[in-house]
């Protein structure tokens, strides 16, 4: 079961975990990304390429489901403007056993950082604002799953 959402509103992580638990499968793993207050950051704005993003996230969820025999994979990614402490992304997986759920979840968060068309813009209290540069460490994190 694959569930992908891209939305501006905040999501209810507990409700998403409940949906995964309701399947009655043995293991659930989840990851939640939160806006960091680094260096006086006051807001983070996420831009994306709507139709392509949805396709990319579906494809990644399908890959994870197949590779780790997941019973479910959920990806929720927010777009628009968020304040420090707000949740940006939710990845949840369920499988018969923990290793598959954990690995599938780790793969999804690594892959969506490098393979889905999202861009972050940071704004700071002193008026500065800039696009976040992609990190080589993120590419390396994704490559370890190849």
């Amino acid at each position: 079961m694959i569930h992908v959402r891209i939305e501006t509103e905040a999501f209810d992580a507990g409700a998403e975990l409940d949906k995964l638990s309701g399947l009655g499968i043995g293991a659930i793993a989840s990851f939640i990304g939160v806006v960091r207050a680094d260096g006086g950051l006051t807001s983070l704005t996420l831009d994306h390429y709507p139709v392509m993003t949805e396709r990319a996230l579906h494809r990644l969820a399908e890959q994870a489901t197949e590779r780790w025999d997941l019973s479910a994979a959920t990806i929720i990614h927010r777009v628009g403007t968020m304040a420090p402490g707000e949740r940006i992304v939710f990845v949840g997986t369920s499988a018969m056993h923990r290793a598959a759920a954990l690995d599938g979840c780790a793969f999804l968060i690594d892959a969506l950082k490098t393979r889905a068309p999202f861009w972050k813009r940071e704004s700071f209290g002193d008026g500065r604002s800039n696009w976040v540069e992609a990190k080589q460490s993120d590419d390396q994190a994704t490559a370890r799953w190849d």
């Binding site: 996420l46 992304v89 969506l112 889905a116 068309p117 972050k120 696009w131 976040v132």
Partner: peptide, 10 residues
Amino acid sequence: IAFFPPVTGG
């Protein structure tokens, strides 16, 4: 066709 910088989601 689309052009954009390296992605920074997640």
